[in-house]
């Protein structure tokens, strides 16, 4: 474990806590894409089911349990508890256009053609694009609550921090995971636009608003 990865994971943890805090305090899931959240549940379940048969560490185990359970809890909050505050008419990105190609990619690119490995690859590819419905929604509405932008910033920071982590591991441990690295680079690139507005507006105390 290096500091990049530790802070990356902590940032990921923070992003989920920020999202939960936003939903609980505003008693609303306005501005949050249900599709993105549902894709994250798919990602976590597909990747972390190994927690039942592969022991890595207590840290790894607890994080996996937290990510699976919190993402399912968020779906519950959106679909049941605060259902009236969720407006599906602006959450229009076609998630099936993401899932389909990721299945195909996972069947082609994997480290071993076994069910758990293909599932693992699928989760890596899907995670890299799971944020698209959320970013698309932001683009469509052209604005976001500040707390929602903090959520996205923490999530983007988590991805960005994994890149120096891989570089570090390549040199210190001699290991490289090309599938995770390529998917991770794509995923981080998707945040570039968002981060530009976040740094130039939100962190200067202005509202997150996209030019018309």
């Amino acid at each position: 474990m290096n500091l990049f990865r530790l802070f990356g994971d902590l940032s990921h943890l923070a992003s989920i806590l920020i999202l939960l805090h936003k939903i609980q305090t505003t008693r609303s899931c306005r501005g949050i894409s249900f599709k993105t959240q549902a894709l994250y549940v798919t990602v976590f379940v597909a990747r972390y089911l190994d927690l039942f048969y592969d022991w890595v560490s207590l840290y790894n185990f607890s994080m996996k349990v937290f990510f699976i359970s919190s993402s399912i809890y968020i779906l519950y909050l959106m679909k049941v508890r605060f259902r009236p505050t969720h407006d599906p008419s602006i959450d229009t990105f076609r998630a099936e256009y993401l899932v389909g190609p990721c299945v195909v990619l996972a069947l082609i690119f994997n480290y071993k053609f076994t069910f758990p490995e293909v599932l693992w690859s699928f989760s890596i590819f899907l995670e890299s694009v799971a944020i698209l419905p959320q970013l698309f929604m932001l683009q469509r509405t052209g604005e976001a609550e500040t707390i929602t932008t903090h959520y996205l910033a923490a999530l983007g920071a988590y991805r960005a921090l994994y890149i120096p982590n891989w570089i570090y591991r390549y040199f210190s441990e001699g290991v490289v995971d090309p599938i995770a690295v390529i998917a991770g680079l794509v995923q981080t690139a998707l945040y570039v636009d968002f981060f530009y507005v976040y740094f130039t507006k939100v962190l200067q105390g202005q509202k997150f608003e996209l030019p018309a």
Partner: peptide, 10 residues
């Protein structure tokens, strides 16, 4: 260099 999945990552 070892290529493969880093299963200790989240």
């Amino acid at each position: 260099r070892v290529r493969g999945p880093l299963k200790d990552e989240l």
